[in-house]
Design a protein around this nucleic acid. Structure first.
Lengths: 209, 209
DNA sequence: ACCACAATACCCTAAAAGGGGGATAAAAAT
DNA sequence: ATTTTTATCCCCCTTTTAGGGTATTGTGGT
C-alpha cells in the first residue's frame, strides 16, 4: 500500500512541482493538493493521509492553524511544514502545535523525499538552519548562575515554587515552621530577593528548580 | 587548508574506525584522538580543531562536562556529540551546554561525514530519534488551558509573576491597593488557587504569562 | 431600559510572611 | 584541633496577603 500524501500550498507552481516529484515514485500516492487549508478538517478526515505537506503562509487560515485543527482530530498523520521564513516565531508555533518536521522551501526540492522517509520512520526532518535555531534556543534556556544554595535550601525552594506555604513545607519535611523560615531567609539572602514571589519567579525563570 | 578534527571516545576500536574513515578524505585532518577528556582544555587550546567529535560516556570526565570546559575557552569549534543513549537527560544537558549536534553511535558511521559538513555549514545534525525527542519536548511545552482571565487580570498576574508586591502593582498601574486586591481575588478564583506563589507557579508553569 | 461584566474602591479580621535578633549540635573544611 | 557551614529551633514585631463582604462606574449586549 503506497504512502498517502496530502499537499497544501497556495503557490500553484510549487504545489504542482511537488506533486510531480512525488508521483515519480510509486511508493507515494498524492491523494490531494489544495491551495488553501480552509477545509483541512474535512479533507484530512476523508483522505486519511499518512503525510501532510503544509505551507505556512496561506490565504484564509495559516498553516499553523491548520496543524492545530488537524491535531485535534488526528495524531498519527505526519506533518511537514514548508516555509520561506526561518524566523523563530513561526517555527516554534508550528512545532508546538504539533508539526513533525520543518523545511525551508529553498531546501524542499532536494530534501522533501528524504524528509518524508524520515518522518515516516519516526524522525523530525529540519533544514539545517532551523535545527541550529532550535538548538541555540535551548542553550539560551540555561544561563545558569550558581547561588550556592545548600541541598536543603534547594529542596525548600523547590517546594515553595510548587506553591506550598511555609506551614506545608514544614510538615512535609517534618521540621518546625521556624526552621523553614530560617532557611527561607537564607535563600532570600543568597538570591538577593525579599519575598516568596521574587524567589519563585527567579527560581522558575532561571530554572534552578 | 583542511578541516581540523579532534576525536574523544573511550572505545579504541570505534575511535580508530572514525579516524580511518576521516583520513580517507583529504579535506579533513584528524589532529588528535583521545580516550578520555581529562586534558581537553589543553588539547583544544593547542590543536585548535574546527570540529570536535565527543563521546558522552567516558571515564574521568564526561563528554558533557568536557563540552562545558571547551565552551568556556572556545565558542567557535563545532562539537558533535556521540552517544549510545537517546534519553532526554543526556541530550538536553549536552545541547544546553553548547554542543552543536547529537548523533547516536548506531548512526555514526554512515552519518558522521555528512554531519561534519552540516555543522560546518551552520546546521545542527541530529539522529532522527533525537530530533523527534526534542520536538516532542517542545510540544509538551504548551498544554495551554484557558482560565478566562480578563486583560487587566492577565496584566496583574504578569506583574505578580515578575515578583512585584500588591503595593508595587498598584502604583505601577496607578490604581488603589484595594483594586489590586480585588483583581487578585478574582484571579485566585479563576485559577483555583489561594496564594501568590500558587498563582505564580501555575502561571509560569502553564506559561500563561 | 435593563443586565452582565470588567474595573474601580473601601471595610474588617485573621493568617501568613518578612526582618531582626540569638542559639545549638553535627558535619565538613581548614 | 579549630573554624565554617549546615540544619535545626525560638523570640519579638511589622508588613503583606487572604477571605469575607459591599458599592460605584462605564461598556456592550439584548
Amino acid at each position: 500500500m503506497p504512502t498517502k500524501i496530502l499537499i497544501y500550498d497556495d503557490n500553484t507552481d510549487l504545489r504542482e512541482g511537488i506533486c510531480h516529484l512525488l508521483r515519480l515514485r510509486e511508493e507515494y500516492e498524492v491523494v490531494g493538493d489544495f491551495g488553501d487549508a480552509r477545509n483541512v478538517v474535512r479533507e484530512v478526515t476523508e483522505l486519511k493521509p499518512d503525510v501532510i505537506v503544509m505551507d505556512i503562509e496561506m490565504p484564509g487560515i495559516t498553516g499553523v492553524e491548520a496543524v492545530k485543527k488537524i491535531r485535534a482530530i488526528d495524531q498519527s498523520a505526519q506533518i511537514i511544514m514548508l516555509t520561506v521564513f526561518d524566523d523563530q516565531g513561526h517555527i516554534f508555533e508550528a512545532l508546538q502545535s504539533g508539526a513533525n518536521g520543518y523545511l525551508l522551501k529553498r531546501n524542499a526540492s532536494d530534501r522533501l523525499v528524504q524528509s518524508i522517509e524520515e518522518v515516516l520512520s519516526g524522525g523530525a526532518p529540519m533544514s539545517p538552519s532551523i535545527a541550529r535555531l532550535i538548538i541555540s534556543q535551548m542553550q539560551f534556556l540555561k544561563p545558569q548562575v550558581n547561588y550556592q544554595l545548600s541541598v536543603r535550601e534547594k529542596e525548600i525552594l523547590k517546594s515553595l515554587a510548587t506553591g506550598n506555604s511555609f506551614k506545608l513545607i514544614a510538615s512535609d519535611l517534618q521540621i518546625s515552621l521556624e526552621t523553614v523560615r530560617t532557611h527561607i531567609k537564607r535563600i532570600y539572602e543568597k538570591l538577593q530577593v525579599h519575598s516568596q514571589i521574587e524567589a519563585v519567579s527567579k527560581a522558575l525563570n532561571e530554572k534552578l528548580v
